[in-house]
């Protein structure tokens, strides 16, 4: 097989991995700390992409638009999630998982239709900013779009920031403790509800960020949340619930099997990541890395 083809598919897979990682790390954070299997997470990712479109268009659709959207879109999603969390989710933390799955699925339906209502059904595109246009020539035949290189750099940055948040800030430490024993955290006088609220908003910010980052590489469309939320859940599960590095590992497995699978057997490319997930779960039913559950 052509080595260059393999390498270039790996690079494609890596940029996909970054998107998957950013979205699923948010999902994992919410699952690990709040124990909410948030099906609406995918919708927030979609809203992030649409918000990126609107913001970028408002600011002229060029470089400025992109940079404003890079921060504006995730913040918009975070704001939205803040409202939902305070008005509905905070009352349901003790419910059964099945109920939470269905409730958040209900919200994903609502969000999906709201997006249709606000943005309509047509495809939307977000332009790649000028400095990210074009290719880097890595080897003789190996081209990497600069935007993908940008993504591959931003992934580890997000991972690092998230790690710093969870392990080095007071808020992160409290949230980790709350994940293990929420009563104990409540007993020492910390307002658990707000800890959960903040964690939820940060998780959703990541969903929005993922949607914003993916927007220039695809056509933004309704239904883009469906396949992504499923993939994110599987990534979180194979990585180990609530484990940020697990989300990275899971995203790598998913992204690489997907891109290499397409090379190996184009027709059944999408089967490979699912098969990989099944394989992992058969041997490590609770995920590869330690779960916080």
């Amino acid at each position: 097989m052509d080595l260059y083809a393999v390498l270039s598919q790996i690079l494609v897979g890596l940029s996909r991995t970054v998107i998957l990682f950013i979205v699923s790390s948010g999902l994992s954070l919410i699952l690990g700390v709040l124990r909410i299997p948030n099906v609406a997470h995918g919708s927030l990712y979609m809203i992030g992409a649409y918000a990126a479109y609107t913001i970028s268009k408002y600011f002229g659709g060029q470089d400025t638009g992109f940079w404003v959207a890079l921060f504006g879109a995730p913040l918009f999603v975070a704001f939205l999630s803040f409202i939902v969390e305070r008005s509905v989710f905070q009352f349901l933390y003790e419910r059964e998982h099945l109920m939470l799955v269905l409730l958040t699925f209900g919200f994903s339906l609502i969000f999906g239709d709201l997006v249709k209502l606000v943005w309509g059904g047509e495809y939307k595109t977000v332009p790649v900013p000028r400095i990210f246009q074009g290719y880097i020539l890595l080897f003789e035949h190996l081209h990497l779009p600069i935007y993908n290189a940008f993504l591959i750099i931003i992934g580890p940055v997000v991972a690092l920031l998230l790690w710093l948040f969870v392990n080095k800030t007071k808020m992160g430490k409290i949230s980790r403790a709350a994940a293990v024993d929420r009563e104990m955290v409540g007993a020492v006088g910390i307002n658990v509800s707000w800890v959960f609220g903040v964690t939820f908003v940060i998780g959703c910010f990541l969903a929005g960020l993922g949607g914003m980052l993916v927007a220039p590489t695809i056509s933004v469309t309704l239904g883009m949340d469906h396949s992504l939320i499923m993939e994110s859940f599987l990534i979180v599960i194979i990585g180990g619930l609530g484990n940020i590095w697990g989300a990275l590992l899971g995203a790598l497995i998913f992204g690489l099997t997907q891109s290499l699978g397409i090379l190996l057997w184009p027709q059944f490319g999408i089967v490979f990541p699912y098969a990989a997930v099944v394989l992992v779960l058969v041997f490590k039913p609770k995920g590869l890395l330690k779960s916080t559950w």
Partner: peptide
């Protein structure tokens, strides 16, 4: 319809 369904579900839950 999905919007209506979502609202119904939330109310039921």
């Amino acid at each position: 319809w999905a919007l209506v369904l979502g609202v119904i579900m939330t109310l039921i839950i």
